[in-house]
Amino acid sequence: MTTTLTDRYVWTVTRHLPADTGPDVARELRGTIDETVEGRIAAGQDPQTAERETLQDLGDPDVLAREYGGQPGYLISPALYPEYVRLLKLLLVIVLPLALVGVLLARVTTGDQTWIDLVIEALLTVLSVGVHIAFWTTLTFAIIDRTRPESQRDRPLTRWNPDQLPTESPTRRVGLGATIGEVALSLALAALVAWQFGGVGERSAQILNPDLELGWQLAIVGLFGLDAVIAIAAWVMGRWTPALAAVTVAANVGAVILLLWLLAEGRLLADLAAVNDRLGWAVDQSAVTAVIGGAVVIVAVWESIEALIKARRGHRGRLAG
């Protein structure tokens, strides 16, 4: 027996329906299709075209199956979508910086990898943590959506109330989450640098020079601390002011001059030959110097531009408010 298009269509629509309705829907749908086809043939179409066009008009069988089964045709319903996006953003902003700091601290203190490996591992960790967060959040919301009674599908999980308004506003553009992230990152970097200058002990990689003059050491740690202070100041003021942007740019210019000068003098980095010997690395001193120099410039330019953009946005926001 050959299988007709109609057979395949009816089967596709009804195969996932529950056993108590599936066969009944199949019987009715088949009768309906047959009658529609006959109607078209009576109107002068040839049988093959009539069958094709009837099925074409009924459309995607999976869509029809969802209609029959009362199943939603989306992963996350429009009613839940805003809550989903809010939660996802919040989780990413808080967890990703923590993951980055965590992996850097853990790996640098054990120190059995090269710098390149460390950077790659940090990026991969942040990527996989981000993908995990997105996946599990999405899955949770999709399951919630599918297990809710049909009558509640057009409602959000919790009724919105004005207390949920974001802390940012036209005159207050700096969010708490982003501020916490920035402060945590700056302090972690300051701690990392301070720990390197303090001497890291036998088992870890001594990258920065612990014999650098105390004044320069304090200045460098202080510059990272300053980032945290600026982030807190911006949050307290509620927006990025031109003054804050100016301080940020000045601090970054100062940092670039200081760090490049110390690098060029060969005073910033420890003698990496000793690290190579002890940990079995094969790091080239001049290559590391070049990479760190480049990174310093890139980060400083990035931070300066970011500060200027934020200050400009804050200024416009104040005019609008």
Binding site: V25, E28, T32, D57, L58, G59, V63, L64, E67, G70
Partner: peptide
């Protein structure tokens, strides 16, 4: 009315 709207609607 389209068939794919009407037939599931009757069931509902």
């Amino acid at each position: 009315v389209d068939g794919n709207t009407l037939y599931p609607l009757l069931r509902r």
